[in-house]
Amino acid sequence: MKGLAVDARGVFAKLNPAHSDGVIALAGNPNTGKSTVFNGLTGLNQHTGNWPGKTVVLAKGNYRYKSKLITLVDLPGTYSLLANSADEQVARDFICFGKPDATVVVVDATCLERNLNLALQVMEMTPKVILCVNLIDEAKRKKIEIDCPKLAELLGVPVVPTAAREKVGLDKLKEAIHQMVFAHQQTRPRPVRYNQEIEAAVAKIQPELEPYLRGKIDARWVALRLLDGDTTIITEIKKYLRVENVEKAPREQGELKVVKCYK
């Protein structure tokens, strides 16, 4: 069984059948056609379940492609992964601690700019991202043309255009997932660079976090969350990764304050 093994409490194990060859998270803003993509890929092979301790429903489904059994997890639709709500926290925790083998971010081709916020947030957490540009038929109708190869080059991750309702592009999406999970296709997500003050603070905090996190989750991303003032991440790290004393890592408390005021 790949992925999901980091969980000490069995939370993620429930979402993953023992015989699955790969686990894929589906993330996206509300109304981007995420469930349509999910249904198109998994057909009737799906179940829903509650996230333990939260009133958040997750759908899980399977499909087989090139003899591999893939488990797909449809995360709640959110604009963000900053844990502003139970939905956002569940989506974040799954991507971050559930260690899916890849995360597909479904975006709306008719308002790409708004959707890329979430895509960039996921790319900060993991390099294993595929962008699914859905509603491409709707975009065409509105005379919006998306240059997917260019977008892939700019973002540094694979981009697949789809019209999920008509099942257009779903085979290409399966192939992109297959390539990422089984051919270990490398991505080079272009990181978001923040202003000098924030980058200076990250440069101090990140190396202090690394010995605690030991590559289990992205230290730059955790540093950025701490600078946001998000303390829930510390609790989650302790819970899922069994990392002790991580709250002692950022000794540069002054730095944290500076950036908070700056916001």
Partner: peptide, 12 residues
């Protein structure tokens, strides 16, 4: 500030 700020920024 806080969650409200995050939410408004995330809405674009």
């Amino acid at each position: 500030e806080g969650l409200t700020r995050n939410r408004l920024l995330d809405l674009g």
